[in-house]
Amino acid sequence: MWDLIIINPMVNTLLYIYSVIGNFGIAIIIFTILIRLITHPLTVSQMKSAQALQEIQKSKEWQEIQKKYKDDKQKLSQEQMRLYQEMGINPFGSCLPLLIQFPIIIGLYQAIILALATTPYQLLNLSKHLYSFIDAARLIPINNKFLWMDLSQPERLPVFGIGIPVLAIVVVITTYLQQKLMTPPPAQSGDQTAQISQMMNIYMPLFIGYISYTLASGLALYFVTSNVVGILQYAAMGKLNWKNLLSFRSQPSVQKNVGKKK
């Protein structure tokens, strides 16, 4: 089922783009942009949900229930849920699009590795995933060289005999930029959400960078493209938080009252 719904369409789309372009690196970039465009409604939904959550957490009513029920966690969460319902907000609305993208990322990685097929067993496996319109005999073997990289291997740029993981570094930088630019200002300085946000701003780039450092560079190319496209998507919607970029402490936003659901 996973192969039928995720892997096969991805592998064949990737190979189709490659058959037209003739460069697997560019095929990954185009494919990533395509995926980002397809999942654009999810990104918008995620952004709106996050923004709505942000707004509600700035409201007086929210602050009041935090104080009022600070010693009764159960009652606090009941009241929070009531507030969410009143405002018509799904608290998981910002998580769900992220979770939907999760299998896409895993599938994309599997599709890239499958298409590159660097061993006989992998190639035999690939032969079973191909649609009839793909002229695989002409395409195989896939040229996995892109710039200085072998897309099926972890990337290192040799400089004076030392392999520098340039792409992994670019992944860390772009992930950090994306996190910072796309994170809305926290409701209160030092609150739990702000702390989590700050922690994720550090951990996530390092984590994605580590993955890029150790796994096939085709995936790192995906991360870089995806990050850049993500930033551009937010920029196009006018939602980039430039103030956050050079700020290493959480910036509280001005508290304001949020009106009830109309």
């Binding site: 895993i106 990685y109 590795i113 992998q122 984590f207 796994l215």
Partner: peptide, 18 residues
């Protein structure tokens, strides 16, 4: 989970041969 999912399908684990 993300790390496990990726490393589970990394080239190292896909190094099946005959």
């Amino acid at each position: 989970v993300f790390a496990t999912s990726l490393t589970a399908c990394s080239p190292a684990s896909m190094m099946s041969n005959w």
